[in-house]
Design a binder for these strands. Structure first.
Lengths: 135, 135
DNA sequence: GTATATGCAAACAATTTGCACGCCT
DNA sequence: AGGCGTGCAAATTGTTTGCATATAC
């Protein structure tokens, strides 16, 4: 992270270091406020505005990913390509390994004149525990 | 639409009829406010609150789909299965035919205990016109 | 006639922003 | 030393909600 920040003329601050460290530790796809709470444990003076600003900076640099979950943003520090399943009952977000989806043929799109930069594949359904409760 | 509404004990109002008709006519994946403007042309007294309420109702009934685009919702009246490409430059949303993505193997997920209800595949990149301007 | 839907406006919640001060380089 | 980053609080924006009235059934 430090090299990437410095490479773009931006500064390595304690707030950014702690934020990314905490996000990478969390496996729950936290919201901005949840990240704020986690970071505040180490930096009691940090503000929510700084969290939002730095989430934006780190997202632009590709150091984290933002998920759109029912109108609010959640964040993911795991950069290895994978998908998500959001439970429509408890709203928890689960990781789905990319290998479950085969033959995503990206090249075809480029032939239509689009410059393809990224993609997101999201599933919606019931997680095993909610599925049990439903019945 | 009328049968589906009545089937769930809900009423067929002029607001709902015009809203869905207008949305189906629009090919631009409009926001709630854009839909409000279009509908207001026919129903000058309609309120934005009613538009939001009815977008929710019609979405729950599966009569339209909601897209999450950079923190705000856009709506799609085209129910045939297709994907979207959002231009990261002009933010326009383009339709991508499902046939461009082959072998999306949904069955594998179910074997892990999830009840799979829906999925969304979204691409991000540059549309042909923005791609030209960039270079 | 009765319950649901509407219009209006206020409330809400997530996110952004302006500004004076602080800290990274 | 200089400028980017921060904390704080206020502003903004998309969306939701309470309530009295209107309307579909």
């Amino acid at each position: 992270m430090e090299q990437i920040l410095r490479g773009t003329g931006q500064r390595v601050t304690r707030q950014r270091q702690v934020l990314l460290t905490e996000l990478r530790r969390m496996v729950t796809h936290p919201t901005a406020k949840e990240i704020y709470e986690a970071v505040r444990y180490h930096l009691p003076q940090i503000s929510l505005g700084t969290v939002y600003r730095n989430l934006g900076v780190l997202e632009d640099l590709g150091l984290l990913r933002r998920l759109e979950c029912g109108g609010i943003s959640r964040y993911d520090g795991d950069l290895h390509r994978h998908f998500h399943l959001q439970c429509v009952d408890c709203n928890q977000v689960y990781d789905i390994d990319q290998s479950l989806v085969q033959n995503l043929n990206m090249d075809l799109l480029k032939s239509q004149g689009f410059e393809l930069l990224d993609y997101k594949l999201d599933f919606y359904g019931l997680c095993p525990s909610c599925k049990k409760t439903e019945s």
